[in-house]
Design a protein around this nucleic acid. Structure first.
Length: 198
DNA sequence: TGCGGGATTTACT
DNA sequence: GTAAATCCCGCAG
């Protein structure tokens, strides 16, 4: 039996495009316990996420439509949207299409911890390496150059190591916003020490 | 370990 | 001009 050549997928466990092309309120909890693969072998388990829902979400950058900054949010799903805020910080999202995205808020460091410590010399413990959206970007070396990266085969990828999402993820209001503050669109792994805020 | 205030650029009013 | 999907420093306990 001749066997067909393997499809041109970068790694067998990298999440497919269809994973991202759904409502971000479904994608956000499903991303819990997935693995963010960065450069130089740095990697961490996603333990905290937030959904930003575009035109129906006053807290989303895309709420008022497309701009130069948020253009990646209006591109295809499964890409990294990286934005600059507070004059000094980068934050990273997975795009879900139509101006929606999931903010990656915290990782549990898995591999490349020595490089993460070099990238974040002020961290007082390994728990502070990736416990916040700007912290994880520093730890993995993510900045504006990574805006638009394809999460299926780019410098940053998201993969499944077989660990399922929590059966009952913790849910609550999003952090650091002033509009649509009441919407419970933040999810995290209950009891995980690397969540930015319990 | 936890709190209060400052930092510092970009986008929008 | 001001708020922003935040973090770091200094100090208290």
């Amino acid at each position: 039996m001749p066997r067909r050549a393997a499809p041109p997928i970068a790694e067998p466990d990298v999440l497919p495009r269809t994973f991202y092309g759904r409502d971000p309120r479904e994608v956000a909890p499903d991303l819990l316990n997935k693995i963010l693969l960065g450069p130089d072998g740095r990697a961490g388990r996603i333990v905290e996420t937030e959904a930003y829902c575009g035109a129906i979400d006053a807290a989303a950058h895309s709420f008022r439509g497309r701009t130069a900054r948020n253009a990646t949010m209006f591109g295809p799903p499964g890409h990294l949207y990286v934005y600059f805020t507070y004059g000094m910080h980068w934050c990273a999202n997975a795009t879900c299409g139509d101006g929606t995205a999931v903010l990656l808020r915290a990782l549990e460091p898995l591999r490349g911890l020595e490089r993460m410590r070099l990238a974040r010399p002020r961290a007082r413990s390994d728990r502070e390496l990736c416990s916040g959206p700007a912290r994880l970007c520093q730890a993995l070396g993510i900045d504006g150059a990574d805006d638009g990266v394809d999460l299926l085969d780019g410098r940053l990828r998201i993969a499944d190591d077989g660990t399922p999402p929590p059966r009952e993820p913790a849910v609550g209001p999003r952090v650091g916003i002033t509009r649509a503050v009441e919407l419970p669109w933040r999810w995290y792994v209950p009891g995980n020490a690397h969540v930015s805020r319990p």
